[in-house]
Design a protein around this nucleic acid. Structure first.
Length: 435
RNA sequence: GGAGAGAUGGCCGAGUCCGGUCGAAGGCGCACGACUCGAAAUCGUGUGUGCCGCAAGGCACCGUGGGUUCGAAUCCCACUCUCUCCGCCA
């Protein structure tokens, strides 16, 4: 039996309750830490008793075997062991209940924020680390990307609504091409220039995978679940890719592992009613190229910096202005220890919008998913550190391109680096019938 | 969907009919040591994971979950996955 509870490293919580408590405060998370510690004590007491009983049973059963099971003495012992076994069963049942309760409590404890994370309550307290690019100057009023896209007849929201529902979109023609070009461009960049290994994972995952990366049990309502099956639509490629190595012990010299994966992503967007109702910003289904790393603990800090730079490179090559934000404790989220958001410039809204999120999960996901490495032959396996980042969200990139590259006549210049994916086409122009 | 076979340690693979001496033979791989100028070959030793415990030590794990039994890798039930053949299918 896989001891899920124990892989979460109860020891850490037991020995550092103050750190866990502070993390919960900083992240505004609620969890029953005291209840957990109490259960832990109960469990250990109970474990001691039941293991003694089991020792007795094992010993006596062996004796019965040796002296012959039909002897009188054996009959006597059998009688005694029947009682012992009943008791063991009772204790084991109690233990199982405690384990289940503890697992629930443990799974709802957030990761500990890195010490450099600024203390804060919401996005107002995030810190701008750097900004890149010059915002485009327009001598006309820049239009929102949905207007640009619909005018070009490359985005169709009404038809998506008919076919599926709200928060879906249909791409046509050059729009569909643009989406596909971006996916290819991003994958090519990360695999050829940044050393990532391409993966194409399933778009459906089981609950163990969702738990491993931290989507479950806390955020069940954010996911689309397949009715009648233990399957979820992936909210991000992070889930299938990180879980590739679930319950594995990697060799130290395999690390670091870099993966780049394209998947569609599916999010219920529960609690986002009325937000970003127009356009590509908040869809139930969107495409994303995700970067995932498995690294040595002592290297995760610098690996996050590299990962972030790798994601930034996409925007730099596309010449899209952006800024990098360091998330404050209150905006950090449940699983990361440290997180940078990349925010791209959207002229029509006169603001930056998140287009990538790069996180260091330290050993948080590794504990939940049982991902370890062996530092040295014969040494005890340790938890790896996992990181991931969008490299980057494709739908939002389309939005940014449509807005930043729009021309007064409604056409949109295709960023130079994408033109090889368009047979050299330089511009998406308004169809005749619209003009 | 139908018929059959299988799931054992890093890998291969015995053990399962006839329950106890099986945390599990043997081999490969790996580590250390010997031999060697060095290496290969050879020989020797070691080599799963987790939990409880200051320690000695103990407990659990042979796909998963239940059951029978004093005792289960071995018997029974359910489930999952893999493989082969047939059917169907992008």
């Amino acid at each position: 039996m896989r001891e899920v509870v124990l892989l979460l490293d109860l020891k850490f919580v037991r020995e550092n309750p103050a750190a866990v408590r502070r993390a919960m405060e900083l992240k505004k998370e609620t969890g029953d830490l005291d209840g957990l510690l109490k259960l832990d004590q109960q469990r250990r007491d109970l474990l001691k008793e039941v293991e003694e009983l089991k020792q007795t049973r094992n010993r006596v059963s062996k004796e019965i075997g040796k002296q012959g099971a039909d002897s009188d003495a054996a009959q006597q012992k059998k009688e005694e062991m029947r009682v012992v076994s009943t008791k063991i069963k009772e204790f084991d049942d109690q233990l199982r209940q405690i384990d289940i309760s503890m697992e629930h409590l443990l799974l709802s404890l957030p990761n500990i924020p890195d010490e450099v994370v600024p203390i804060g309550t919401d996005e107002e307290d995030n810190i701008e680390v750097r900004a890149w690019g010059d915002k485009p100057q327009f001598d006309f009023e820049p239009r929102a990307h949905w207007d640009v896209g619909e005018n070009l007849q490359i985005l169709d929201f009404p038809r998506a609504g008919k076919v599926t529902g709200s928060r879906f979109v249909v791409y046509f023609g050059a729009g569909a091409r643009l989406e596909r070009a971006l996916i290819s461009f991003m994958l090519d960049l990360h695999t050829k220039e940044h050393g990532y290994y391409e993966v194409f994972p399933p778009f459906l995952v089981n609950s163990a995978s969702m738990t491993g990366t931290g989507q479950l049990p806390k955020f069940a309502e954010d996911a689309f679940k397949i009715e009648g099956a233990d399957l979820y639509l992936v909210p991000t490629a992070e889930v299938p890719v990180t879980n590739l190595h679930r319950d594995e012990i990697l060799e130290a010299d395999q690390l670091p592992l870099y993966y780049a994966a394209y998947t569609a992503c599916f999010r219920a967007e529960a609690g986002a009613h009325g937000r970003d109702t127009r356009g590509l910003i908040r869809q139930h289904q969107f495409n994303k190229v995700e970067l995932v790393k498995f690294v040595l603990p002592e290297q995760s800090d610098q690996e996050l910096e590299k990962l972030t730079r790798d994601a930034e490179k996409v925007l730099q090559l596309l010449k899209l202005p952006y800024r990098v934000m360091l998330m404050c404790s209150g905006d950090l989220g449940f699983a990361p220890a440290k997180k940078y958001d990349l925010e791209v410039w959207l002229p029509s809204a006169d603001t930056y919008r998140e287009i990538s999120s790069c996180s260091n999960f330290t050993d948080f996901q590794a504990r939940r998913a049982g991902i370890r490495y062996r530092p040295q032959q014969g040494k005890k396996a340790q938890f790896v550190h996992t990181l991931n980042g969008s490299g980057v969200a494709v739908g939002r990139t389309v939005a940014a391109i449509l807005e930043n590259y729009q021309q007064e006549d409604g056409s949109v210049i295709i960023p130079e680096v994408l033109r090889p994916y368009f047979n050299g086409l330089e511009k998406i122009t308004v169809p005749e019938n619209v003009r």
